[in-house]
Nucleic acid binder design. Structure first.
Length: 560
RNA sequence: AGGGGCGUAGCUCAGUGGUAGAGCAGCGGCCUUUUAAGCCGAAGGUCGUGGGUUCGAUCCCCACCGCCCCUACCA
């Protein structure tokens, strides 16, 4: 059986005599003073908190540092379960080696002069057996002082109990850290969603499912890095604080730099900086990082969210579509073991992606009850999308179907986009590439040579969610300036207020033909972990502050 | 922002117009292979907050706070 190398030598052994010298563990503060200070903060339950503070003193009295510096371990609980889960009692007896294991105590069963507990570490539990005869009087007193939630280390060897559970026969207990507050209920765990989000640390301890989701999220990001690294991309970090927010249409958060005395905006997209890098000769770049949008919160929106953005010189949006089909199939396979994955009540098949132009999608998902579907050619005519929308809306009003509400005057392209979102987007459950977006709603994409009203842009929609958005990047500085100015002229809170002149200047130095794309990591993770809400895949989603934080009606970011 | 739902012990949940209950956790006791350990005993609550109706409100009504879901917003 494998015996992993143990890195005991990395840190020189401590001088125990000096370390345990009298007074060494004298409390730095009085327990009751701590309790007085902390309880205005309302950490509950107070009785258990105080009980445990007293135990700290008793642990000190036994000669243990209640908060020691380290513990040299040989195996995690998870590793033991993995390696020895199948070993029989006699096998363990024959292969009797010393193990040193650390973990959090998640169950205790005390029985007079012996007892059992479960140590949880690296996501798995292993049982320990502590016998007074073995650990001695003091060791057993320490065992008695343990609470659920405490961190301990043990030294011992593996065996199987009468009921055949893999367990550690403990020779020595090392106290590692005190838990002053109790763990959630051991059987039902933590089910209150609000508590799960606010106190994610408890959720992670108590709910294996939650732990798995975040492990999977980490693997997804790992896989993505591997995918792009293998294709000659380099990873970069561009600014999160922008003097001019750009690269998307969204309301930014505002912050202030004191020394420079300027307002800065938390970025709504890294796009314009990444393309400056393409100008600079980084032909393949990607960034995985946060964007911030001062907008609504829902099961699909968190004010800060993680995007992968990547740019590839000398390619176009068709190349990206092909890359995406590979990437999504590969990810689904490596993360879930199959290209067909369960999401809610449906099976999503990532082995292929339907491709539809935006106009085709409108025609395909036009409700029969709303009358004859418009022709693709009709939608392309001036006023065509608008006419179709009003025909649809007339029916929607009567039938109670979603209404395509427009604010103000819309252009043909905006009508097309609106109609698409109203009737088609949420119908796109199976992975679908929707392409050829109207120019009017795609200020950063290159137009189609044969039809300047459309751009070489696509989105990947899965389970009705936009998970990716890519295009052939507009690199004509004159055309880019025209579109920026049009946006500014149009106004509105989510439109840029100011021309990003340096970006135009960068384009003037010549950006090679480039294809670029953003993939929403949070939504991708939702799909691959079968999570219905984005908050299930974000460790600390945005919530209102606890205890009724001040309601600042003077939010600068809103400018209202 | 609008609609619906929820808020009872640290956690998971019952419950009632007459002032509150269980399990787990915690406390005391018994128990040297248990495993949602068991047994005995004691403790733990401004029933989210504030008003109102009522002789009496945790329950009914109103407002507020927080969370969840749907809609809206989010190219």
């Amino acid at each position: 059986m494998p015996h992993p190398p143990v890195a005991f030598h990395l840190i020189p052994p401590i001088d125990l005599a000096r370390f345990l010298a009298p007074g060494r563990f004298a409390p730095l503060y009085s327990v009751s003073a701590f309790a007085e200070r902390i309880f205005p903060l309302e950490f509950e339950p107070r009785d258990q908190f105080e009980q445990r503070l007293k135990k700290i003193e008793e642990i000190r009295a036994l000669g243990h540092d209640p908060y020691p510096r380290e513990f040299r371990w040989t195996d995690t609980p998870a590793a033991l379960v993995e390696k020895f889960g199948g070993a029989t009692g006699p096998e363990l007896e024959a292969y009797k080696r010393e193990v040193r294991v650390a973990g959090r105590i998640v169950s205790i069963r005390l029985m007079g002069k012996a007892g059992f507990a479960h140590l949880q570490g690296a996501g798995k539990r292993v049982q320990i057996y502590v016998k007074k005869d073995v650990v001695g009087e003091k060791g057993f007193r320490l065992f008695h002082l343990l609470d659920l939630g405490d961190s301990i280390g043990v030294r011992g060897h593996l065996f199987r109990t009468k009921t055949n559970e893999l367990s550690i026969w403990v020779d020595e207990i090392f106290f590692l850290a005190k838990a002053l507050l109790p763990l959630p209920e051991k059987w039902h765990g933590l089910t209150d969603v609000e508590l799960r989000y606010r106190q994610r640390y408890l959720d992670l301890i108590a709910n294996e499912k939650s732990r798995q989701i975040f492990m999977t999220r980490a693997r997804i990001i790992q896989e993505l890095r591997r995918f792009f690294d293998a294709r000659g991309y380099i990873e970069v970090e561009t600014p999160m604080m922008h003097p001019i927010p750009g690269g998307a249409a969204a309301r930014p958060f505002v912050t202030h730099h004191n020394t420079l005395d300027i307002n800065l905006y938390l970025r709504i997209a890294p796009e314009l900086y990444l393309k400056r890098l393409t100008v600079g000769g980084f032909d393949r770049v990607y960034e995985i990082n946060r964007n911030f949008r001062n907008e609504g919160i829902s099961t699909q929106h968190n004010p800060e969210f993680t995007m992968l953005e990547f740019y590839e010189a000398y390619s176009n949006y068709r190349d990206l579509m092909d890359v995406n089909e590979q990437l999504f199939a590969l990810l689904a396979g490596s993360i879930t073991g199959s290209t067909s994955i369960k999401y809610g009540d449906t099976e999503l098949d990532f082995s292929k992606m339907q491709r539809l132009t935006m106009r085709e999608a409108i025609v395909k998902y036009w409700p029969k009850e709303a009358g004859e579907a418009p022709q693709v050619e009709k939608l392309a005519l001036p006023g065509g999308a608008r006419e179709a929308t009003s025909r649809y809306n007339a029916w929607a009003k009567k039938s109670g179907a979603p209404y395509a509400a427009s604010k103000g005057q819309l252009t043909d392209g905006e009508w097309t986009g609106l109609l698409f979102e109203t009737i088609a987007e949420d119908k796109l459950v199976q992975p679908t590439i929707v392409y050829d977006f109207p120019t009017d709603i795609s200020p950063l994409s290159k137009q189609k040579p044969e039809d300047p009203s459309l751009t070489e842009r696509f989105e990947i929609i899965v389970a009705g969610m936009e998970v990716a958005n890519g295009f052939s990047e507009l690199n004509d500085p004159a055309e880019q300036e025209r579109r920026f100015l049009a946006q500014i002229a149009q106004g509105g809170e989510e439109m840029p207020k100011q021309l990003d002149l340096d970006y135009i200047r960068a384009l003037c130095h010549g950006m090679p033909p480039t294809a670029g794309e953003g993939i929403g990591i949070d939504r991708l993770t939702m799909l691959l972990t079968d999570s219905p809400s984005i908050r299930d895949v974000i460790l600390f989603p945005v919530l209102r502050p606890e205890g009724g934080g001040e309601s600042s009606s003077t939010s600068e970011a809103h400018g209202r």
